[in-house]
Each structure stands twice: as C-alpha cells, then as structure tokens.
Design a protein around this nucleic acid. Structure first.
Lengths: 199, 199, 199, 199
DNA sequence: TATGAATGAGATTTCATTCAT
DNA sequence: CATGAATGAAATCTCATTCAT
C-alpha cells in the first residue's frame, strides 16, 4: 500500500513527541529529572521504553526539550504587554495569574528542578541563559517604555533583577513555607513592585 | 590496652561525623545529592565507604544532616540582631555579607539542591519547614521590635515573606544569570527593603 | 492494472536482494556482522528496515548469503585455470591480483569476520566448509594436472593446505602488520609456492 | 580489627583479576567478544556482575587485557630460542608444540576473535601491533643469528612475514577445514620452512 | 511492494548497602 | 574502629523483529 502523506505523518510524530514531553513533565514534577526513570516516562506516556528513543536521542534531550518548552511559554506570556499603552498599570493589574503559578507547588517544583539541573549541567544552563537573556531584553523594553523618566541600562538591569528576584523568590517560598496567604502577600507585593518601577 | 575515656571517644566520633558532613557538603555542592556517590563522599572524607555507615544510617541521613546543619547556621547568623537597639538600620547596614553568600554560585547551588529535594522528599521538607518556622518567629520578632508602629501578624508575615522572597530570588538569579552586578543591585535592594520594612 | 509478467517481477526482486547484499557487505566490512544494525543496513541499501525482511528471513540469513556469495566468487576466480595447459606457470604468473586482494585491509576484514563467525556459528561453518571442499577438489585437480609426477591424495592435500595457509596467512598479516611490502613479499612468495608445487 | 597486610590483599586482588580473565577467555573463545555478555562472564567467573567492575573499568578493558596477555605468552614462548646455538635446527625440531596450538580450534577461535576485533577497534589494533613489532624484532634476530650468510633487512622482513603467514594460515585453516592431518602437514611444512630460512 | 512505528528483551554500567575480617 | 570486597537491583540505551497501513 502507498505510504501516507508526509504532513499526516509529521503531525502524528509531533503528537507522539508531545505525548512524551507531557508525560515527562508530570514525572519530573513528581520525582525530579534523575528520580524519574525512562521506564516511568514510558509508562506515563503509554509507550514502550525503546520507542521513546525514536523521538529523543536520550534522556538528556528530553530534559532539554522540557526546559526549552517551559521557558518559551514563559517568554510568550509576557509578549503581549509590549503592545500595552499603560504598561506598568497593566503589569500590576495582571499580577494575579503569574502569582498563582509561582505559588503552585507543582509548577514551582519543576522550576526548581530546572534550576538545580542548571547549576550543574552545562547544556541546561546554556538553554536557561539564552531564554533568560531574551526575557531580560523584553522586560527591559517594557521598563523603558513604561517609565516616566529616561533610565540608564544599569537602572533597567537592577529593576529587572529585583522584580525577577521577587518572582523567583515567591516560587521558592511556595516550596518551603507550609502555606502562603496569597491575598495578604499581594497586598504588599503590588506596592513594592510599584516602588521599584517608579524608583 | 585500657579503654579510652568515653568523653574522648565521643569527641573523636563527633569529629569524624563532621569530617563526613564537610566532605558531603563539598560533593553535594558540585554534583548534587543524587550525583554524588557514597564512594565519592568516602574519598573526599578520607574514609572507607563502609565506615561512613558507622556514623550515618544511610545516604538519606547524610542529606538530612547537611540540610539541618545548613539551616542551623542560617538561623544562628541572625540571632545577634535580636540584641540590637536599632534593628532595621543594622539589618540594612549588614546586608553585604549575606548578599555575597546568596550571589555565590557554590552556595546557591547547595541551597537549590536542598529546595529541589524538599520538593519531593517528605523528610527533607519537614526539616526545612521546621527551621523555616523558627526563622519566621525570629525575624517576626525583629520586625515587631524594629517597627515604629504596631504590626498585625498578617502584616509581619507578608513583610517576612517578601523580604525572604527577595533573598531567595537573588540566589536563584545567581544561578541562571551569567553575572549580576552586586553593587548596582544593592543600590536598589536597600531602598526596596527599607520600603517594605517601613510600609 | 494488469499484473506484470512474472519474469520481470523476479528480476526486480533479485536486483533488490543484491542491493541489500552489497549494502550489507559494505557495512559488515566496516563494522562487522554484530556491529552492523539492521537500521544501518537499511539506510545503506536505501530501503526501509521492514522491507529487508521481504527478501531475507532475518539478519542471520543475510550473513549466510554474504558468506556464500563471497565464497562463490572465490571459487569462480580459479575455475579458468582448469583449462590452462601450463597450470603452475599460469598460477605463479597470475599471483599479483589475488595478493592485492589478500593484502587489502577492507577485503581482509570481511574474510576475518566470516572466519570469526564460522568459529562459533554452526550454519556459517557448514557453508564455509562446503565451499572449502569444492575449492579443495578444484585445486586438487589443478595440482594433479600440473604436476610432473603422479601425486598421492595426501600429497595433494598437504600441498593444497600449505599454499592455502600461505594465502590466508598473508591476509591475517594485512590486518595486524602496519604495512607489508608487497613486492618484497612476492619475491620470496613465488619461489616458495614453486617449491611446494614441485616438492 | 586491623586491616590485612598489603601484600596479601594485592595477591588476592590479582587472583580475582585472573579469575575474571580466565573466565573471559573461556567465554570469548565460545561466543566471541561481543557474543559474551557481562552476565555470562560473571557467572563463569563465579562473581557478581557489579564486582567485575572493581577489577576492570569496563568490558573493553577486559578485552584489552585478554589480548595483551595472549600476546605476552606468545612472545615469551619464543624467547628461549635466542640462546640456542643451532637456531634453525632447534626451530624446526620444536615445531610440534606450536603447531598443536595453531591447529587447536579453541586456541584458533580466540586468535581469530582478536584479529576480527583488531580490524575495527583502534585500541586493540594498537596492542596487537605493539606486540607484533616486538615479535618481529625477536624473530628478526633469530633469523640473523641462524643464517649462514648475511641478510638485508628486507630479506629478514620477507622471511619473517612468510613464516608468520604460514603459521597464521594454519590457524585459519584449523577453523574452516573439517580436519587437518597434522603429521601429513608437518611432513611438507618442515621442508618448506627450511626452504624459506635458507633461501 | 513498501514503510517505519512500535515492542520488549537484553546489554553495559552504576551504586547504596552489607559484612567478613 | 576500620576496610573494601561483594552483591544485586535498577538505570540507560540498543536492536532484531513484527505489523498495521
């Protein structure tokens, strides 16, 4: 019989790849990169161990793909602010959703896992830094556009890093605090970020 | 031969235990909990693999002890502020040293490793939370003492969490940013913390 | 559509089979029987993995076919000497070409691979021995025809085995000597073979 | 309790290493380097799989050691001829034992396995060539000493290679001939080698 | 005829832990 | 107190073979 059209094949392959990535994300969240075995990934993905290797060269490649995907989504989520006419107010107004993510232990667990891997794995740290640089550029532009006065590059950098540190830090505390009171936190977070933005 | 006095024996044992913990800390910083083998720990500690099991029940116990030790040192490092007469000013003045730690990639790597483990390991998260609660109490008292007006518990909590998030977040960024400009950062960090303290 | 004539079909099939065998020979030379995967063979043959199984029952069958083919070619290459009127002189005069083969590392590698397989694989050793017996018969006849005096069967056998050993041995040395000086070797090889022939 | 004397430990370790090598030689003879699994080696050596890795870095290291050991024994077996006063006659007289080895299918199988590996494995070919060069030097000296007339280096080389080819070739034929008549073969081999030696 | 997705067994290697000495 | 030989389970990865299309 004739082989199927290429487009159909590719779509199918891409679906399978995603199937693996989603299974991997679940496993990695629960057990970490090195705590998740290929056998677990395979079971979770509903696929044989060997077949995963049709889509990914090795386990490392799955980790890389997960990290890349996660950062891409992050980057995409701030792009729309570039078109805002009142950037700072929009940022502050839309703080709720990201905060929900950062304080979600599942989400936080994967972020921390990525960080821990980045601390020792050259390939992963390269991926993280490349994305981070893009985010820095994007947010830098947001800060410049939204500011009421001209900012030097070092001012932009320190504002970016401090706001970033607040976000990352909340994520960290989502893990080691028993429970955080989100509303209570937001009540102080908002004025603090405004303070930094307008400093 | 006459048996040695018990006190001497115990001191010796305690020394050996620390020898292991210090070796473990070095390994864990470099390779992570799961990337460090017992053989590596033994080599680094100048001791046989089997002998480590005289001092620690298993690898897990070493991890627990490292985590506990790290948090104890953290806690100890803020105790002296309780006796200060001008708490906020002292805190801000003494920000340099901790910042140096947080931005040190080696130090940061171990903290992240602990966090990642805490995200999945019930015993470790219990240790971290117990210490965290003590720190929360101590810092809470500092905030109460140092504040110019009476604070509600929720106010104290949010201030603590936000300042804590800033610290933790800087550590995170020490890993995924290439290099951070410490002085530039401090120039904005100090007023931001002051803002939170005095809010 | 009308089915194609059977002969055409068969010729096509035979072509495809050879395509696989030639690809296999290339792979086996480079990586050995067990170092070549079916995926490699398929790629080299410009054919899908699954399709190879239309022409060969399994990998073993490909190995068998390669071995058979190689020996058949060997056998064919000495047939024409049977018609020679001056057998020994023709043999000695035509020594150059086979020597070139035996000293060619690529050629030698496949022969050794076949031998190594024969040492452990009953089917392969059977194929090799069957061919070997035919070669023994053919060369035996050459020796009888070319000899100036009547030879006993044991004399023929030992002459055959010793000349054969010289050829096989040169091949072996092509692998483990860095480089052999072919001309230098021929200068002594020719009189030695003549010595054996005329003994 | 006090640790044992180092010498005793080392002897024990060396014994264990040999235990592995002997088991490996048996397996490799029967199933080849790549046909023998670490599990088989372990079983044959009466040792757990993991423990083999205390003595050898990996499977490759075992192969290398086997190859080296085999060649060392070969080299040792010809050293005593250097002290002979009638080298050629001694060589011819002592031909029986080596011939027995070369025609032993078990012995031959391992040699062929080594060759096949050498044809593709850079490390193994280096080991083989290094030993081969030593053998060439030793035999070269034997040829020079035993010869009745002065020999050029190229003459020595071709004599060495041709005699070597005869030996290697007999080994090859031990595998692919059903059975060889050793006495019959020797009756022709001896004069042939004498012919080469005295050419 | 032709594809390549899919499987699952098996290979090498690592490592926490135990135990005889 | 001290060693490191020894185990065995589990991890990653490869590959011959099958099968739906």
């Amino acid at each position: 019989m004739a082989p199927k059209p290429i487009a159909v094949e590719q779509e199918r392959a891409s679906k399978r790849r995603n199937q693996v990535l989603e299974a991997a994300a679940r496993c990695f969240r629960l057990y970490g990169f090195h705590g998740s075995s290929m056998a677990q990934l395979a079971k979770e993905a509903g696929m044989s161990v060997g077949h995963i290797y049709h889509y990914f060269e090795n386990k490392e490649a799955i980790i890389d793909a997960i990290v890349q995907k996660d950062l891409d989504e992050w980057l995409a989520s701030i792009q729309h602010l570039l078109n805002s006419s009142n950037i700072f107010e929009d940022m502050l107004a839309q703080l709720d959703d990201p905060i929900r993510d950062w304080l979600d232990p599942d989400y936080a667990a994967l972020q921390i896992e990525i960080l821990a891997e980045a601390a020792r794995n050259a390939k992963v740290v390269a991926i993280v830094r490349a994305s981070h640089d893009k985010i820095r550029d994007t947010v830098g532009e947001l800060l410049r556009k939204g500011s009421s006065r001209p900012l030097t590059q070092t001012e932009i950098d320190s504002k970016f890093d401090l706001i970033g540190a607040l976000c990352d830090g909340l994520m960290v505390r989502a893990i080691h605090s028993g429970t955080l009171d989100r509303d209570n936190l937001l009540a102080l977070l908002r004025p603090t970020i405004r303070f930094i933005l307008e400093y």
